[in-house]
Each structure stands twice: as structure tokens, then as C-alpha cells.
């Protein structure tokens, strides 16, 4: 009987592997910086894009401006630092909104099943049939530029994944003997859902969602880059890259550093997600074949 806590093993496995450990540090670092950036930025006015200083434009990295300055003479480091707050906000917003739509649909369809369940899942599948990024671009373009619109557009292309995941989890949990026990005790459905089904079905979804933040950041940056995301002068990383793109030939640092920030953050999240999946999923083909003596 393996009654030791699964989470404990997963965490200890992650900490033991250098790459997983590094990714954990990156992700935690990103969150801490994102939360504190508004207080930390050395040049707040540059960061928010409130002023510009033409005399200081296109300065290469120096001690004063470690990542240089941009076309309007603003400190790139400050803009990137504050950008992490926006990225965090977008990620949390997109994931939060997508969960807010996806969870009820998944839980209702999974727990009650029947006609309503089938209908809800058909709708979900319809959304899933669109390429998600394309759907997001079309929506963002229709809604117009702006932080809130960007979040809404991404969340709409995103929720069906969570609805599916929650649906599958709910289906598993609803057949667990402890749910039967609650039914036998005469608990009404609503209590069974709120006390047993939701808490148990959501854990894997929440973990998944938290690790999806990297992808949300990447997609948001993509939309901003092609001009359907946030409005300038918001220091969103995708927008920063796009602004620096025009001067890439003579002032590489303006696009390079925000690009690097995106890269590190996204890779950090994805590596962490992989580490979780690897240590949490006992059914991976690799481990299964290993049990049978095949080492690949």
C-alpha cells in the first residue's frame, strides 16, 4: 500500500534534478519580481512610458542603463522589469478567466453527464477544433487593442482545454468509492460536488493551469508583437520586442533583452511542467517499458 504522500515524492524528485531545480528557481524568481517590480524599478517614469528623453536615445548597455535605452531614450531594464508585472497579470488573468469558464462546464458535464453533459462537451469540442492561436488573433483583432481585451481573447481560446481536463477528472472522481460513500450517507448532489468532486478533481487542473502560465505569456507576447495585443506605451514584453525590432540592426539591445526575458520565463515554466508530468505520471510509456526490462 503506497500511502506516502505523492506530492512529497514529486517535490523531492524535482529538487534532486538540477534542471528541474533551476526551472523552479526561474519560475519563483519571475513571480517574485513580477509582484515587486512596481516598487523596484530604477526609473519608474521610463518604465510606465510617461516621459521620453530624446537626448538619451539608443544608448548601448552601460552601468547606468544595464540594458541600454530605447528609441525614446527610456531605460530598457526598467521597462522589462515592469513588463514582468504585466506578463504576470496577463498570465494570471488569462488562466484565471479560462478556469472560471472551463471549471463549471467541465464539472457539470462530468458529474451529471446525460444530454446536458453531451451538449456542453460538444460545444467545447467545437472550440477545440479551431487552432487556438488563430482564434485568439481573430478575437483580439475584433475586440481591439488593450490589456483587458487581450486577456479576454486569450481566455476564450483557452478555456476549452480546461473544460476537457476538468471533465475527465470529474468523471474519474465521481466514480471513486468516497463519492459513493457520500451518496450512501444521503448527501445532496450539490454538497457532494462542492466538498468531494471539486476539491479532488481540480488539483491536477490547477497544477496544469499554473504551469500553462508560460504559454500564456508567450501567446500574449505574440499578439502584442503583431500589433493586436496591448496598447503602447505599456511595457509588455511582446510589444517591447516589436518596438525594438525596427532598430535591431543598430540597437540590438532594445529587442534582445525583452526577447531573452520571454525565452527564460517560458522555458522555465515549460521545464517545470515537464518535470511535474514526468514524476507524476506513472503511466508514461518509458517507465512502463522500464518495468518490463526495456531501457530506452
Amino acid at each position: 500500500m503506497e500511502k506516502f504522500k505523492q506530492q512529497k515524492i514529486i517535490l523531492s524528485l524535482i529538487i534532486r534534478k538540477p534542471i528541474s531545480f533551476l526551472s523552479l528557481i526561474i519560475v519563483l524568481g519571475f513571480i517574485v519580481v513580477g509582484l515587486t517590480a512596481p516598487i523596484l524599478v530604477p526609473y519608474p517614469e521610463d518604465a510606465w512610458g510617461l516621459t521620453y528623453n530624446v537626448e538619451k536615445r539608443f544608448q548601448p548597455p552601460s552601468i547606468e542603463h544595464p540594458f541600454g535605452t530605447d528609441a525614446l531614450g527610456r531605460d530598457v531594464f526598467s521597462r522589462i522589469l515592469l513588463g514582468s508585472s504585466f506578463s504576470l497579470m496577463i498570465a494570471v488573468g488569462v488562466i484565471g478567466l479560462a478556469l472560471f469558464i472551463g471549471i463549471p462546464i467541465g464539472v457539470i458535464a462530468g458529474y451529471y453527464g446525460g444530454r446536458v453533459g453531451t451538449l456542453l462537451m460538444r460545444i467545447t469540442d467545437m472550440f477545440l477544433a479551431f487552432p487556438p492561436l488563430l482564434l485568439a488573433i481573430v478575437l483580439a483583432a475584433t475586440l481591439g487593442r488593450g490589456l483587458l481585451n487581450l486577456i479576454i481573447a486569450l481566455a476564450i481560446s483557452w478555456w476549452p482545454w480546461y473544460a476537457r481536463l476538468v471533465y475527465v477528472q470529474t468523471n474519474t472522481v465521481k466514480n471513486m468509492p468516497y463519492v459513493d460513500a457520500a451518496k450512501i450517507a444521503g448527501l445532496p448532489n450539490i454538497k457532494i460536488i462542492s466538498k468531494h468532486v471539486i476539491p479532488n478533481a481540480l488539483t491536477p487542473t490547477i497544477v496544469q493551469a499554473a504551469l500553462d502560465m508560460g504559454s500564456a505569456i508567450l501567446e500574449a507576447a505574440g499578439l502584442s508583437f503583431i500589433g493586436v495585443g496591448v496598447k503602447p506605451p505599456t511595457p509588455e514584453w511582446g510589444l517591447l520586442v516589436s518596438e525594438g525590432w525596427q532598430s535591431i540592426n543598430y540597437a540590438w539591445w532594445i529587442a534582445f533583452f525583452p526577447g531573452l526575458a520571454i525565452l527564460i520565463t517560458v522555458v522555465g515554466f515549460n521545464l517545470l511542467a515537464d518535470a511535474f508530468r514526468e514524476s507524476a505520471d506513472p503511466r508514461l510509456r518509458r517507465t512502463i517499458l522500464m518495468r518490463l526490462g526495456v531501457k530506452q
Binding site: 460513500a181 450517507a185 479532488n200
Partner: peptide
């Protein structure tokens, strides 16, 4: 009047509840 005990005790107890919550749930309900 009719209650049940199942085969796998770990699957029939909600992993997120402590013993007090598990045993008191049916009582609280009725």
C-alpha cells in the same frame, strides 16, 4: 438504515478530509 464498507479503505476515504470530517459528514447531514 443501510450503510456500506468497501474494499479499498484508501479509495473510500476522501484524501482531502481528516478523520473527524470524514466521520462527521453523514452525521452533520442528518
Amino acid at each position: 438504515s443501510v450503510q456500506a464498507v468497501f474494499q479499498n479503505p484508501f479509495l473510500s476515504l476522501d484524501p482531502r478530509m481528516n478523520v473527524f470530517q470524514i466521520i462527521s459528514e453523514p452525521v452533520k447531514n442528518s
